[in-house]
Design a protein around this nucleic acid. Structure first.
Lengths: 208, 208
DNA sequence: TAGATTGTTAATCGATTAACAATC
DNA sequence: TAGATTGTTAATCGATTAACAATC
């Protein structure tokens, strides 16, 4: 039922995640229409249908989409039908907060190791995650079969550490450092830059 | 020198923030070319020049852009030439980490109050920020002339609390709750949804 | 001057929206 | 059946890239 992928706009994936969340808020209901998904998501109904159409036919003309079925389909599409082993690198304020972030764990992203170059931190457990010395990175990452890393280190060290993580087997990086990482093409990167977002707000409100 | 704004693509502002950061990494140098900015940012040189052209003429043919001058211009464009008073709502793990986040303070975003509906927290100082009971929100926000709020509350309460913050004078919301907030048109909103970003990575690596 | 690089226009590319036949 | 709503095609809209005259 899930069509093999033609050319997917890079922007549909975040929307799929959004729809998936909305479906979870409708447990118990049977069907949902693109119009309803539009109301909850803020995207147009045409966009909703187009987005789903990239992956297959999930709806029923005249009736809408079966919520349980669609949830399952999106779960498969996004790769949420399995556990992902995640390591967090950089156990500072933000890193610690993310160690306990429910939004990751709930969707199968399990942080099974964390690294910091402060020897004080190595050996401790924080939010139930063991902290290792950065020097142990490769061994631990391979042993724990880490798929992806969350990078919460200072900007200055981000590039070198990201590269090291890749050499230790990471296939994707969720990067919180405000820098454009240069990594091999096969490595997937998403950036979260909180300053950029807040600066967008100051731009918007200061131009009136 | 800063042109009054025709129709700015919504995507140029985050790029302007990015350029601004890069300029800061080149203190001491005199000029920088769109080609160099391209190398550091990952955007094309044509894109760099086009982005700047939305706001005016900042460069010098044959020589590039004066770093100090450009820095100042972007600072004005983004509204970073003043202090912004920010309140944080929802003093959980993530909220506490953001109270101490340097990336905000360094650019003039000063978190001058935080709110939580846990009465245990009210009255405490965390990372040098006073925590108030959520019931005091309007009084404190008006007294401290809060411009924008950072919203780190659970999804279920986000909509109601965001609306309350707007009624208390907030003109912009940096929203970490995984929900599409419905607020008056004049209110600016940016969403940071960390689960969406990590799900994007699992999509990318699971389709190979 | 020759070489470098801007600012801008035109061409291309990609994403969103509108419209509607098909179908439940 | 009549009403609702999908999936898809075509039309529109917007953003990026290429190209180059202007200029330092």
């Amino acid at each position: 039922m899930i069509k093999e992928i033609k050319k997917i706009s890079q922007r549909v994936i975040p929307r799929m995640s959004r729809y998936y969340r909305i479906l979870y808020e409708h447990n118990g209901k049977d069907m949902i229409s693109s119009k309803e998904l539009s109301d909850f998501s803020g995207y147009t109904a045409a966009q909703v249908r187009k987005d789903f159409a990239y992956f297959g036919q999930f709806g029923c003309p005249g009736r809408g989409y079966n919520i349980e079925g669609l949830k399952g389909s999106i779960r498969k599409i996004l790769g949420l039908d399995r556990q992902w082993n995640v390591a967090l690198i950089g156990v500072g304020n933000l890193g610690i907060a993310l160690l306990g972030y429910k939004g990751f764990k709930d969707q199968g992203f399990e942080i099974t190791a964390a690294f910091d170059n402060d020897p004080e931190k190595a050996g401790r457990m924080i939010k139930n995650v063991e902290i290792f010395s950065a020097s142990k990175m490769c061994g631990v990452m391979r042993q724990k079969k880490i798929d992806m890393v969350i990078l919460t280190v200072p900007r200055e060290s981000a590039q070198a550490i990201a590269m090291e993580a890749v050499e230790c087997g990471a296939k994707a990086v969720l990067n919180f450092a405000p820098i454009n990482l240069k990594l091999p093409d096969a490595i997937k990167v998403r950036n979260i830059d909180m300053s950029i977002e807040i600066e967008n707000l100051s731009f918007l409100i200061s131009k009136g």
